[in-house]
């Protein structure tokens, strides 16, 4: 858990890139990333989740049936600037691998940080979806990302 966590709970309206809005509970409480695990998910080309491994289910707090069929953006934490996800989509849209540090929102409003890698899944020359693998980031990288995202959010 981050030393700065206050445990405060609030609600925030999140607007996703497709115009969808939802009111989410946000709790200032970090869920520590478990050692040795990888969070793995796959989506279709539009970002709709088609596969979630057990670590993803455990960390996000959603059950498998809630994750499958949902858009991956349900994990988006309001502290994440939109420009970070634009970079993700621009990069994988070019068929390239994307790496980044992401603060994810759990179902109960708490959060966890990951180092995420996303790659396009190409079968017989056709894009069929994306695979995202998340791993444990260092505390230094989290602190750097927090500072950067705060600045980027202020500019939005």
């Amino acid at each position: 858990m981050s030393e700065q966590d206050t445990g405060e709970t609030g609600t925030v309206e999140i607007t996703y890139f497709d115009g969808t809005k939802r009111t989410a509970t946000v709790v200032d409480r970090e869920v520590p990333y478990p050692d040795g695990k990888l969070i793995v998910s796959r989506t279709d080309p539009k970002g709709v989740i088609t596969h979630a491994n057990q670590a993803f289910i455990d960390m996000s707090g959603y059950c498998e049936s809630e994750l499958i069929g949902a858009n991956h953006y349900i994990l988006r934490h309001p502290d994440m600037p939109a420009v970070a996800f634009k970079d993700l989509w621009d990069t994988i849209g070019r068929g390239e691998k994307w790496h980044g540090y992401v603060k994810n929102l759990c179902k109960d409003g708490s959060y966890y940080w990951v180092k995420a890698t996303v790659i396009p899944n190409v079968r017989n020359g056709q894009l069929v979806g994306y695979t995202s693998v998340r791993r444990k980031p260092s505390r230094r990288k989290i602190e750097e990302s927090e500072a950067l995202y705060k600045t980027l959010l202020a500019e939005e």
Binding site: V40, I119, T131, V133
Partner: peptide, 13 residues
Amino acid sequence: TEFMIDLIDTLID
């Protein structure tokens, strides 16, 4: 097989 290979690809920088 392809899924496993995609996963390995994400781990190689």
